[in-house]
């Protein structure tokens, strides 16, 4: 029995050491990517190409999800608020929840599963088929040429996608409550504008989505670059990207919210 306990503790220790070590490797890789980003700035075409894959191709899922999330928020908010006779505050409810939380977080979760996994799979496959080795044998640094442009495209497109998500959500809420249910249009917008603050709500949401963009793409490129060069290796890395970045988004969201809205109602 004590033997089993000892081996259990050993197991825990092993996992902790393993994950701390991996975190270290990932941070070093992240620094390397930042350090080698000069090529992405000088040859911005490389980033534009990747923006198409990370940004433009994520648009549909972001627009549709944003619209539906906003419509549901409008419907649920109306149901609850009308009990207190304050259904005109539904605009405030929809806008604040979207701009502060749901926009950045849900858009980032969608982004992680749409673009993050694609980045991991692509880099992992390039590694498995020796394309990265071939590149480095051609005296071209794969981190600068392949990884950095993908990283920056993610960092750029994430806040834009989050903003599009929020706008679509507000529009969805407007559709349901004002157009379908018939809440007064004027009070919908004016109450919203009264309580949504540029500095505290919109800027903070924007900053959040920037952090999420960095986190998701950093995880995605690392998992891809680090993947064992086999089919199972790549598929495992893709799954890990989605899981790890979703957890990272939610964890970061809590930390950032705690910092941003501390002391403010």
């Amino acid at each position: 029995m004590p033997k089993r306990i000892v081996s259990g503790i050993q197991n825990i220790g092993h996992r902790v050491i393993e994950s701390v070590w991996r975190l270290g490797v990932a941070s070093r890789f992240f620094m390397l990517v930042l350090f080698k980003s000069g090529t992405s700035v000088r040859r911005f075409n490389l980033v534009i190409r990747e923006l198409y894959f990370t940004g433009v191709l994520s648009l549909i899922i972001i627009v549709v999800s944003g619209l539906f999330v906003g419509m549901v928020l409008g419907l649920q908010g109306y149901e609850t608020l009308q009990k207190y006779g304050s259904e005109s505050a539904v605009g405030t409810l929809v806008a604040l929840s979207l701009v502060r939380e749901l926009g950045p977080v849900v858009a980032a979760l969608l982004f992680a599963s749409r673009a993050g996994s694609a980045i991991t799979a692509e880099i992992g496959l390039m590694k498995a088929t020796e394309q990265l080795s071939a590149m480095s044998m051609m005296a071209v640094d794969p981190v600068a040429r392949v990884v950095a442009p993908r990283f920056w495209s993610g960092v750029i497109s994430m806040p834009l996608l989050a903003a599009i998500f929020s706008v679509m959500g507000v529009f969805g809420g407007y559709l349901v409550t004002v157009v379908f249910i018939g809440v007064d249009e004027g009070s919908f917008w004016s109450q919203m504008q009264d309580s949504v603050d540029f500095r505290f709500d919109i800027m903070n949401g924007f900053i959040k989505s920037c952090y999420f963009g960095v986190a998701v793409t950093a995880i995605a490129v690392f998992e891809g670059y680090d993947a064992p060069p086999t089919a199972e290796g790549v598929s495992g890395a893709t799954t890990r990207t989605v899981v790890t970045s979703s957890l990272a988004i939610l964890g970061l969201d809590f930390i950032l919210t705690a910092f941003m809205f501390r002391g403010v109602s």
Partner: peptide, 26 residues
């Protein structure tokens, strides 16, 4: 390394580039 070329086992062509762009890469 610019004075060396290497042919990998299965070619290791860049799958996102056309044949022309692959050869033009370097």
């Amino acid at each position: 390394r610019r004075k060396m070329g290497m042919l990998f086992q299965f070619g290791a062509l860049f799958t996102d580039l056309s044949v022309f762009d692959n050869v033009a890469f370097q």
